[in-house]
């Protein structure tokens, strides 16, 4: 693990009119680190995650991916070229999977690499096989998304993001839309990525998963990071009253 941050967020702020959804947030994530962002809905955690690849642009502040500023101020045309390049290095997984329904699983995986990296048929096939094997979905390579369960869809969506060989993976409530019995198969794939030291930033409601897998946990509320630290501290011995209240509600019935 190196000390240089792979993701560096500096003084991120975002507001819609007078509503401030992010208030001066700074965050460094080093290579191989796995960071969970937890907090009540409306706390700004998804907005922060979506600011990292500029899907939801910040009002002010900077986001850096290694030595390149993601939200670099550029004229629109140059910015388009710049952001498309940067986004290839930042994988993202959505709550609702967003697989392309008109394409097979294979085509979902290879679409972007073929269009953006100019790989050929055989290489594309190899890539699809490699990524689908990783998420245990190789036997569904010729299926369409509608023929898959939610958990299977999400595993394919993870494979699709991985196929671009990103430097960091963002997970936006990846298991929130799944039936309870399907959550585990997606968690297993994410755990496996963690073991391979993929850098990950995970917005989640799954406290158990955050506790087991993550190196750091950020608790956000009302647009600020209220508390952050290793999972043992945040979950077992939180310093802040708001964190304690939130966890009490979430952990009720567990343990």
């Amino acid at each position: 693990m190196t000390g240089n941050p792979i993701i560096n967020i500096r003084h991120a702020a975002k507001s819609y009119g007078s509503l401030e959804v992010l208030k001066d947030i700074s965050l460094q994530v080093t290579k191989g680190q796995i960071v969970a962002i937890i907090g009540p809905s409306g706390s700004g955690k998804s907005t922060l995650l979506r600011a990292i690849n500029d899907l939801d642009p910040l009002t002010s502040g900077e986001v850096w991916l290694e030595d390149e500023q993601v939200n670099k101020p550029l004229p629109p045309r140059q910015y388009e070229t710049h952001i498309n390049k940067v986004r290839q290095n930042i994988g993202m997984v959505f709550q609702h999977f967003n697989l392309f329904p008109h394409l097979t699983v294979r085509e979902n995986i290879t679409l972007a690499p073929k269009m953006l990296k100019g790989i050929t048929g055989a290489q594309a096939e190899e890539l699809a096989v490699e990524q689908l094997t990783k998420v245990g979905m190789l036997d569904r390579i010729d299926y369409y998304p509608s023929q898959l369960s939610g958990g299977q869809k999400q595993r394919v969506a993870i494979a699709r993001a991985l196929a671009m060989k990103p430097k960091v993976m963002l997970f936006d409530e990846a298991t929130s839309a799944l039936d309870p019995e399907l959550v585990e198969e997606v968690n297993l794939v994410m755990k496996q990525l963690a073991e391979e030291h993929m850098t990950m930033i995970i917005v989640t409601h799954e406290m158990g998963f955050a506790q087991d897998v993550c190196d750091r946990v950020l608790f956000m509320d009302q647009g600020v990071v209220v508390e952050e630290g290793p999972p043992d501290v945040i979950f077992k011995n939180p310093a802040n009253e708001r964190t304690r209240n939130f966890l009490r509600k979430h952990l009720r019935g567990r343990n």
């Binding site: 690849n53 899907l55 388009e80 498309n84 390049k85 986004r87 290839q88 930042i90 994988g91 993202m92 959505f94 609702h96 967003n98 697989l99 392309f100 329904p101 008109h102 679409l111 972007a112 269009m115 953006l116 969506a157 699709r160 993001a161 671009m164």
Partner: peptide, 24 residues
């Protein structure tokens, strides 16, 4: 979400339209 998924993979607006939005 279709546009968002395509854009986060690095596809441009036009590439997204041609390969993802228009066929649907």
């Amino acid at each position: 979400g279709q546009t968002e998924a395509a854009r986060t993979l690095g596809l441009s607006r036009f590439e997204t339209f041609r390969a993802v939005t228009l066929p649907q």
